[in-house]
Design a binder for these strands. Structure first.
Length: 506
RNA sequence: CCCGACGUAGCUCAACGGCAGAGCAGUGGACUCUUAAUCCAUUGGUUGAAGGUUCAAAUCCUUCCGUCGGGACCA
């Protein structure tokens, strides 16, 4: 047996010894004329299909009929050896199934080879017949076992799993192998995305792609990542939003468009922010923000119903209720409820608003403009007070350079944000399509930038030219996909819904 | 960027100024229905890195690296 040959390497100790022992086994496979990394494999059933087939046959008293089942997957957990037999679980993309290996079924040589040459973590083909153990677990009695891919490094321990947060992010594959919960969360993320695409496709929206690298960034307030494009010898920005390009498509005659893509914002990381995040933006010509509101409500509640088979989600021990209709609340009312301040009493009066804050002893980081101060009040006092899905409506025009004014009160714009679990899930407004008003708002933003607001958007002449050719009235909506996945999966940290969150390079 | 906590065997964790340990995994052995298998034996360490204090440092101090939490910045 090859175990004799392991002794010298064993003295090396630690991980090196574990790897050295497995390398010896790879050599042993080759000495036996077997390829430890064969190109061909086979499969007749997934683990779940095999279990289902067995149950169906058992119901007809024909359980012996399930023979010649060929599984493919990874050995996981622990090998439970009993001299002449052994148990181990095989995990594939669908689930797990227990394998029972017996000397009298496999033969002496094959059984010895299993004990000596196979490790937890290896990919194998296992062929056999289905049966139920004495303790009732549906299992495969293996009559042929083949190596598909020998592993060199050990998997995390079976009982505690992978606890180290950093390793879970840096080596996500280990997290996925050992944590069914994590695996299911990412499966659900995928289902949420496909449900959203089905919803939008079903309403006549066209999925499009727009530039990630942009010569001028816009469509939001954020610091961008910058890069240099050598061939054109010019500075470029990674997009902070795709809004201005999607609107160009409205100008071009597409009436319903959407894009699901990564946006990049050069800002800090916390439970609800990552510098690289996924956004869905959609634009609907001839619709306004009220129609978009209905669309948002039915889309998100519909997705929740579809992926969770219900309208409630448990998050941090509390219940989120996605039943429609969601609560509606104006910005003015929400700020008044949360702080006692009526923003109309200090309209576009930065000093007056600051004075009111001081009088009420409200902690609020100093902001360079009136608009940013109102924004700060929403972020500090309104958002944390919201739990169930709520539409925050009607923002002051100074906060929203791309939104259309309300016809009955031009101090405000037709805009809402859906708030859930203390944070904003998205942003929506009736899009500004008056090119003269749009130019004025850009110029106002440029003045704010000059007066210290380094997040204000730069003027985009090319976009203005598009709008000057005529843009239909439209509603536009953006939904933060990562945050949507958080609330629909009951996850309180955005890093747990992103497969490979950014970490500092080590 | 600031404050705090943490970093020990492949994994999960002890030891908190006095010989660096356990469980799991691994290795050798017993065992043909286990599922955290059991039993016997056993390998495995630059205690994140560098420096300092001390007779003696995983432990105390300094700097650096990394992660987490909070703040700052920020949708």
């Amino acid at each position: 047996m090859p175990s004799q040959a392991l002794l010298p390497q064993e003295q090396a100790g630690g991980l090196e010894a574990l790897v050295a022992a497995r390398r010896v086994r790879i050599d042993r496979f080759r000495e036996l004329g077997q390829d430890p990394y064969p190109s061909r494999s086979g499969r007749s059933h997934s683990t779940v299909e095999a279990g289902a087939a067995f149950l169906a046959a058992e119901a007809e008293n024909a359980a012996e009929g399930i023979q010649g089942v060929l599984l493919a997957g990874r050995l996981v957990g622990a090998i439970r050896r009993f001299g002449g037999s052994a148990f181990v679980h095989l995990q594939d993309g669908a689930g797990q199934l227990q394998l029972h290996l017996r000397r009298n079924l496999l033969g002496d040589d094959a059984f010895a080879a299993f004990l000596d040459l196979y490790d937890i973590g290896d990919f194998v083909n296992a062929r056999g017949s289905m049966f139920r153990t004495k303790s009732g677990e549906i299992s495969l009695a293996v009559d042929d076992l083949r190596m598909l891919a020998k592993s060199l490094l050990p998997l995390p321990e079976k009982w505690h799993g992978l606890q180290d947060v950093e390793t879970r992010y840096r080596q996500r594959y280990l997290d996925l192998i050992t944590s069914a919960e994590s695996r299911e969360r990412f499966v659900k993320r995928s289902r949420i995305l496909s449900a959203m695409r089905r919803f939008l496709d079903g309403r006549g929206f066209l999925e499009v792609e727009t530039p990630v690298l942009q010569p001028i960034y816009g469509g939001g307030a954020a610091r961008p990542f910058t890069t240099h494009y050598h061939a054109l010898e010019q500075e470029m920005f990674l997009r902070i939003a795709d809004e201005l390009y999607l609107k160009r498509l409205l100008v071009g005659g597409f009436e319903r468009v959407y894009e699901i893509c990564k946006d990049f914002r050069n800002e800090g990381i916390d439970r609800t922010h990552l510098p690289e995040f996924t956004m869905m933006e959609c634009y609907w010509a001839y619709a306004d923000y009220q129609q978009m509101l209905t669309l948002t409500e039915s889309m998100i509640s519909g997705i929740c119903q579809e992926v969770n088979e219900g309208l409630t989600v448990e998050l941090e021990g509390r219940t989120l209720d996605f039943s429609t209709p969601w609560r509606r609340l104006t910005v003015r009312q929400a700020i008044q409820d949360a702080t006692g301040i009526d923003i109309e009493a200090h309209w576009e009066d930065l000093d007056g608003l600051r004075q009111a804050l001081r009088e009420l002893n409200l902690a609020c980081a100093p902001q360079p403009t009136w608009a940013r101060t109102v924004d700060e009040l929403i972020g500090e006092y309104v958002e944390p007070s919201i739990w169930n899905p709520t539409f925050l409506l009607d923002y002051p025009v100074a906060l929203s350079p791309l939104a259309k004014r309300k016809t009955d009160d031009p101090r405000y714009v037709e805009r809402f944000e859906p708030l859930i679990a203390g944070f904003e899930l998205g942003n929506c407004f009736t899009e500004l399509n008056d090119p003269i008003d749009q130019r004025g708002r850009f110029e106002e933003a440029a003045r704010q930038k000059a007066s210290g607001d380094d997040e204000a958007q730069p003027l985009d002449e090319d976009f203005l030219r598009a709008m000057e050719h005529g843009m239909p009235p439209a509603g536009g909506l953006g939904i933060g996909i990562d945050r949507l996945v958080m609330v629909l999966t009951g996850t309180m940290n955005i890093r747990d819904v992103v497969l490979f969150p950014q970490l500092r390079q080590r």
